[in-house]
């Protein structure tokens, strides 16, 4: 035997002593790529080419846990972080759908209503210094705001037959500020109308049945409370009936107070119009039909809301 071959043999035996060659046996798919593990679950390797993976056996489920612990190694942390971050960002991007848009829109409408009311009341108070009688004669906020902008005090007095006013004679630059506020409020009212139109349009495409039977405001509120069309479609009709009445419902469960009959559905014209002793029944049946509508919409069924509406109107209208 020559010296050189002896030394290679020696080296080989030493090598095998130090690092017993572990053939990879199992493979499983992870975010990091195709990951191979040996039989005794002691070594792990991320495979670079897919051909190698085809020769290996898929990892049995009971061994998956051990494999995940092999991945708990500082070598992989950075890669894990970077890849997960990309996936999560993409998932957030994909999570935006019509539900999210409708929910934002209906929330905006709700808040605009509050702000408009608040500011309109302030305007009435302010105007009380100048022409207090007008506030008594015009009860509609929107109309009141419009009058303040378009007409002077003398014109208003003539129009509403106010012969003598308690209001002070304010100088022009004081009145100017008042009109400025009124103009801003009018802008907000216009914004609200615009939002209404937008909501109608989005819902017409996304959930025509729900829109037809519930109307834009109530339909959108239901979507908001039900956290999206999918979940709303999966909810039982009895839950839909009580969406928005959570406080009363839990009070009932906790203290045995009276059961609430309706949540946001209370605003619906069918329930508003129903006789007092039929209101609960109307709410229940409306919720039934709404539940059907959401399912039709979610699974892209035909338009049936018109039929349901006629049916309910015949009974409670």
């Amino acid at each position: 035997m020559s010296r050189s071959s002896q030394s290679t043999k020696l080296r080989e035996s030493l090598y095998s002593l130090r690092l017993p060659a572990r053939p990879m046996k199992y493979v499983f798919l992870h975010l990091l790529g195709q990951v191979a593990v040996d039989e005794k679950m002691q070594e792990i390797k991320i495979l670079k080419d897919t051909k190698e993976a085809q020769r290996l056996i898929p990892l049995p489920t009971e061994k998956r846990q051990a494999a995940l612990f092999l991945l708990k190694d500082k070598r992989y942390y950075q890669e894990l972080s970077a890849r997960n971050l990309i996936l999560t960002k993409e998932a957030i991007r994909n999570a935006v759908n019509s539900d999210a848009l409708i929910i934002q829109s209906i929330s905006t409408i709700g808040e605009l209503d509050q702000i408009c009311n608040l500011l309109a009341k302030r305007l009435r108070e302010w105007c009380g210094l100048y022409l207090p009688e007008l506030s008594e004669k015009v009860t509609n906020h929107e109309r009141f705001v419009e009058l303040i902008i378009t007409k002077t005090r003398v014109e208003l007095q003539k129009e509403y037959a106010i012969t003598e006013t308690m209001g002070a004679d304010l100088e022009q630059h004081h009145v100017q500020e008042l009109v400025l506020l009124a103009k801003q409020i009018q802008q907000l009212y216009r914004l609200r109308q615009e939002q209404d139109r937008y909501l109608q349009k989005v819902m017409q495409e996304y959930c025509p049945n729900l829109l037809e039977l519930a109307g834009a405001t109530i339909g959108a509120r239901l979507l908001e409370l039900g956290k999206g069309l999918k979940r709303l479609a999966l909810l039982p009709a009895s839950t839909i009936q009580l969406l928005g009445a959570e406080k009363a419902l839990f009070r009932h469960i906790k203290t045995g107070a009276r059961v609430p009959k309706y949540g946001v559905l209370f605003q619906h014209p069918l329930i508003q119009g129903a006789a007092k002793d039929l209101k609960g029944k109307a709410a229940r049946q409306l919720a039934d039909k709404l539940s059907l509508c959401t399912r039709l919409d979610y699974f892209k069924g035909e338009l049936k809301a018109g039929e349901y509406k006629k049916e309910l109107e015949k009974r409670f209208g």
Binding site: H30, L68, F69, L70, L71, K72, D73, Y76, L80, N84
Partner: peptide, 8 residues
């Protein structure tokens, strides 16, 4: 998320 994490 099983395929996106490691043991803890």
């Amino acid at each position: 998320y099983e395929k996106r994490i490691c043991g803890a």
